[in-house]
Design a protein around this nucleic acid. Structure first.
Lengths: 229, 229
DNA sequence: AGTAAAAAATGACAATCGTCATAGAAAACG
DNA sequence: CGTTTTCTATGACGATTGTCATTTTTTACT
């Protein structure tokens, strides 16, 4: 449970910022953001933005996890990415000068700051380090997605589930993976029933254990060999 | 068939350049590239770069088409993108300061210019228009790939084939689509045999016609409704 | 042009996976 | 604390799709 006074976060002391794309900012730049940003508390399952709307700025996650997803034709979500504390979200659409092509929604309680489009773009104009960081981030994500596409096309659901569990371990560091079965299925790219059946297999083979919806990985190496990495 | 004298292309008169990311360059910048770039003729099925190697610059396609692909664990290719005349290729890995995560190979005879990493990066430092163009391009491609992932996860092979044929129409403008069945299958993300069977269905339903390996779309609207767009 | 090699096409078959229906467990809520 | 609702789990079944084997067509090469 998040503290109430957590809701107003200071950029200058934010430990998340020091590790992320905004880590290289100067004091004056930070205080400028500090004065202009807004900081909000979000409940679980709240929407940050939806496909088709115009971006007005970027979201900087201080605490909590969110899903970035796209809806297919029948309305089914495909989760493209799960972002966590420290991640910047929603800047891609801003650069493409177009509407959002994906939606974002909190998976749990979150504290999230918001920096306006104008502030962020002017920061990028004046700060080459930030600029390079952003370009590098975009490029790295493109490579990740090429990999995601290849996995989708060539791996079985079982292999993709093993792969996804390993990815989720890096998102839920030190804690059990805590996603609804439907969200997990939409991340792996399968039907909820199929996902549940395969989780059961993994449980019986003792690669994972579950407590209610929470999943703990017991045999990381085995999952890696199933995932083919 | 490409003319021999096509092989040395001048940037200042290049009609491709005027339409692409390098369209906003100044005269001095162009002449600098002109002096430093190299220009090469490639045969069909020649490699531009492969996964795992370090990028030394960017490729600017003057004429011809190339495939960008990633190999899955069993060695099967997944085609991520097909680039054509005017496209810049291979700059993502350069920005991520890492090895290529994909490979590139010509699909036909090509004329391709090469600009070194140093030249290109310094051009980006000095030219804000180019920089913005690159960032926009990266962002747009990220959105495209989110869509690609969703299609892979949620559409049937038949739907993906219809979708792919529509994409290929934009790559083979005014000419029939000319890809090997294996490459098409690796683009759609299916087995070659399955692809051939579905092409046969489309042929029998008169949505396409084929002459040898070449495919002409007859009923664009029908394909759109199958693809779900 | 003629032959060799590669690519495309077809057939048969099995398995993965999605869908629908329903039961059971957990969570939410007054 | 019990009731409602949501989520998870399981069963049955069929369709889509991948694999292997083989034939036919096209392309490449001398």
């Amino acid at each position: 449970m998040l503290e109430k006074d957590f809701r107003q976060v200071s950029c200058s002391t934010c430990h998340q910022r020091k590790e992320n794309l905004l880590g290289g900012l100067g004091c004056d730049e930070i205080s400028h953001i500090e004065d202009h940003k807004s900081c909000n508390y979000y409940k679980k399952n709240q929407s940050l933005f939806i496909e088709g709307s115009y971006p007005r700025g970027v979201f900087c996650i201080n605490e909590g996890r969110i899903k970035i997803y796209k809806r297919g034709n029948e309305g089914k979500e495909q989760i493209i990415q799960i972002a966590k504390g420290g991640d910047l979200v929603g800047f891609r659409a801003m650069f493409s000068e177009d509407v959002y092509k994906v939606s974002a929604e909190t998976l749990e309680e979150c504290n999230i700051c918001f920096i306006s489009r104008e502030d962020f773009l002017s920061l990028m104009d004046s700060n080459p380090t930030l600029r390079k960081g952003i370009i590098k981030e975009l490029s790295t994500e493109l490579a990740d997605r090429a990999n995601f596409i290849t996995n989708m096309a060539q791996k079985s659901v079982r292999e993709r589930l093993a792969f996804s569990l390993l990815l989720l371990m890096d998102i839920y560091v030190g804690e059990p993976i805590n996603l609804s079965r439907e969200d997990m299925a939409n991340f792996v790219g399968t039907a909820t029933e199929t996902l549940i059946r395969l989780l059961k297999d993994f449980k019986e083979e003792a690669y994972i254990e579950t407590h209610a919806r929470k999943i703990t990985v017991l045999d990381r190496n085995k999952l890696m060999s199933i995932a083919g990495i």
